[in-house]
């Protein structure tokens, strides 16, 4: 059963990726991206990474993709009916992607992954929270600082453009 579900999510991810690459309609590509991100969240659940899956849905599918679609819609230029992305240099792009793909395959086949006993507890949220505030406190504070800088920067930019 679990394998079947896993296969289903892999298939959905592949369909989504295929649509992103092949479609010329930017909005359709964004919808397909949402499909990819949600199916990846499904795979995370099957790998027992519950919290990661939730965060993936909340931040990527519910946040990033929606802002992306929103941005595409806001920048629609009046005369066009459908937003179409052009593809240039397709041969070069294909060669580059094949090169990166083969590099990745090579690295993954050479690398030895340490197998570790999964220590899954029933309350992942609490454990991750505790480890954020104890072992990884510096990283946590650093992320908070970066986000604060981003927020201040965003509001500064918004203020600047409204003054024009």
């Amino acid at each position: 059963m679990s394998e079947f579900v896993q296969f289903f999510f892999f298939l959905l991810t592949l369909i989504g990726v295929g649509v992103i690459v092949s479609t010329k309609n930017v909005v359709h590509a964004a919808y397909a991206l949402a499909l990819v991100l949600v199916s990846l969240a499904g795979i995370y659940v099957l790998l027992n990474a519950e919290l990661l899956a939730i965060v993936q849905i909340l931040l990527y599918a519910g946040g990033v993709v929606i802002l992306l679609v929103f941005g595409v819609m806001m920048t629609r230029r009046g005369s066009e009916d459908v937003l179409v992305s052009e593809s240039k240099n397709s041969i070069l792009a294909l060669a580059l992607s094949l090169a990166i793909f083969s590099l990745l395959v090579y690295v993954f086949s050479e690398a030895t992954f340490e197998s570790f006993e999964s220590t899954i507890t029933s309350d992942q949220v609490r454990e991750i929270g505790v480890s954020f505030l104890t072992n990884h406190i510096v990283a946590f504070e650093l992320i908070a600082f970066v986000l604060l800088v981003a927020l201040v920067g965003a509001s500064y930019l918004a203020k600047m453009s409204s003054n024009d």
């Binding site: 949600v38 519950e50 919290l51 939730i54 965060v55 849905i57 519910g62």
Partner: peptide
């Protein structure tokens, strides 16, 4: 789900995608 409430908030935020 240990993060049940969090999951609920995450999933219902996806309805925006359908509305868009």
């Amino acid at each position: 789900v240990s993060g049940g409430l969090f999951l609920m908030l995450a999933i219902i935020s996806l309805d925006v995608l359908g509305i868009l």
